[in-house]
Design a protein around this nucleic acid. Structure first.
Lengths: 340, 340
DNA sequence: CGATTCCATGGAATCGATTCCACGGCCCTA
DNA sequence: TAGGGCCGTGGAATCGATTCCATGGAATCG
């Protein structure tokens, strides 16, 4: 069943050199003669040698594995982020161990513990909560870490995040100009920095642009589709319905959209809708969706670059990427006069 | 910078036992006294001990890491599959190393080599091509392997796949009944088993139900959005346009949808459209999309179960899951009479 | 031409855990 | 009471690679 295991000794024996020399050749150490190099390489490929990463990592205390912790790969934002980061890492010779926290702090910690045990070269995380024990353990061990998309208050590591505030202000201003005064907001969970920040931005902008500050207009969701649907149901059940809805991420926007559509409400005329995050199919909807967009691709690549900087002992500055409003038909028409 | 590294010796010393005993306690070996157990556990948690997975794997030649190779996490089908498999694996105590082949055989091999070097406990792969060297190396080493979604001709490993044929026949029959006779097909690449099988099913069904067998109606894409758009452009440029289009996966369907919409073609009335794979937002489109659906969740869980069987030395039967047509408005109306 | 430096090489220690093996204490039975 | 079996424990070997250190031969310099 299990084939023969080829070790570096087998390679060395076939090449007629010592394991030490074989190791030097195979790990690119310059102190080797070209003839030894040729023989070792020939022997390795002849035997189909695959170095044992465990043994290598154990001795050299270095690995080429980075841990990437996201909250849910089914969220296209994180799928794209994971893809971008993974491709960027690969191009630098690093492979990615993907952890899915499932928006759960417990699962997040489970993966962080795994990352520690695997002695990963670094961690890129979209963290939750406010500094779980496992997250602190990662940092205490000095494992190079960067945050992506989200941060944790009081933990000072380099990060790449989106400035949600500008996009949200643009969105609120846009709605206010269209004549909306009651705008529902489906927020992310308060255990995430993005959930908190976007809510704060929305509240501030609503105040600044003279929208209703009725607390019932805010529904706290969990960044997943079902809570978007729940949020929409909540907003529809209010005695005074909002005329526009802003959702703090795209899965919740999809959930809300689904509920609104099922209730026979026409997006763009009966109700305006704006999503945070742009997806490639949002323009294809009946009423193409107005969104607050940001560049996931750049975010992923930047996170890898920051991590490499940290690994190399530098102390890179955090990066904040812009967000901007893209107006489409879902906010195309002014609100109907309130029948009330 | 780097914190102190806690080894099992430190734990043993604090607990007042030998490293051997500490190891037995920490790895659940029953041959330990309850007092030793208590002391070791107390010491380990006091020191914040995280076992070195490398050392453990090196000695015991077992790991709790499984490699999951998909072609593109940005494809929601694979994102959902990865999520399902990862959650199922996690519940069995396994963590997942995710590889993204990006529909490229070269990247696929790169990850497979990494899996070998990492000495993963098993591999779940959606393979490409026909048995690349790295794939053969995985199998020759006796690494437990299962295929998911796709297979490779001539390589006999347990797999969990979808019976696309039934769904495609239903789709073709449905279109034929609606009066369509020229149906365009945007196929997957011939380097994948799903690409080949679905094309074969479509051709056979087109023949059986009396549709045009004009080869120009088939466009070979690569399962990615851009090729769906290219396929749509190709079909629109034909002297005799088709009245319906079937796309072999959802990203290509989205690409096609995007092009068709931009060209001012109304889905459901000017042109029927069917996608393979159902996404949660497909019902939300202007013309909700008719799809051939299958259960990704079950596929992911089943793949993990098969892999565990193989790891335990059993020889499980491959599983074939059903697919079925879900009719929505995108194929709602019969084709317009050909103006030609 | 002798002394010094340089460099490729091999031997052996090492990383941190697991596990084989031997040992000693205890209980049970003859 | 003596002998056999059982069980928890510690010492030491081991996994496969890297890397320190010593060595010997070639090259360089005065």
């Amino acid at each position: 069943m299990t084939g023969p295991v080829i070790t570096i000794k087998d390679v060395a024996a076939l090449a007629g050199v010592s394991p030490a020399t074989a190791s030097r050749v195979l790990s690119g150490n310059p102190a080797t003669s070209s003839e030894a190099m040729a023989k070792v390489i020939a022997a390795a490929s002849k035997l189909g040698y695959h170095p044992n990463a465990q043994a290598r990592a154990l001795r050299s205390t270095r690995t080429n594995v980075v841990g990437l912790l996201v909250s849910d790969v089914r969220n296209p934002f994180f799928a794209n982020l994971a893809h971008a980061a993974e491709q960027a890492a690969l191009s630098k010779g690093l492979v990615t161990l993907l952890g899915n926290a499932n928006e759960s702090i417990e699962q997040q910690d489970r993966y962080l513990d795994t990352f520690i045990s695997q002695r990963v070269a670094g961690v890129i995380a979209a963290p939750q909560g406010d500094g779980s024990p496992s997250l602190r353990a990662v940092l205490e061990r000095g494992i190079p870490t960067v945050f992506v998309d989200r941060t944790v208050d009081g933990i000072d590591v380099p990060s790449v995040t989106t400035n949600s505030d500008s996009g949200i202000r643009q969105a609120v201003e846009h709605l206010a100009r269209q004549g909306h005064s009651r705008v529902g907001y489906i927020a992310g969970p308060e255990t995430t920095s993005t959930g908190r920040e976007r809510l704060r931005s929305f509240a501030q902008a609503a105040h600044d642009f003279g929208l209703s500050e009725d607390p019932a207009l805010t529904f706290i969701g969990d960044f997943q589709p079902a809570s978007g649907a729940a949020g929409a149901r909540h907003l529809l059940a209010l005695p005074q319905r909002p005329t526009a809805v802003l959702a703090a991420d795209s899965p919740m926007a999809v959930g809300a959209l689904s509920t609104l559509t099922r209730e026979g409400i026409r997006i763009g005329s009966d109700m305006a809708l704006i999503a945070f995050d742009d997806l490639e199919w949002f323009p294809l909807l009946d009423a193409p969706l107005t969104v607050i967009a940001h560049d996931v691709e750049v975010m992923g690549r930047t996170a890898v670059q920051l991590l490499l900087d940290v690994i190399d002992g530098r102390r890179p500055e955090s990066v904040v990427l812009p967000s901007e409003l893209i107006v489409r038909a879902s906010t195309g028409t002014p609100p109907r006069r309130q029948v009330s």
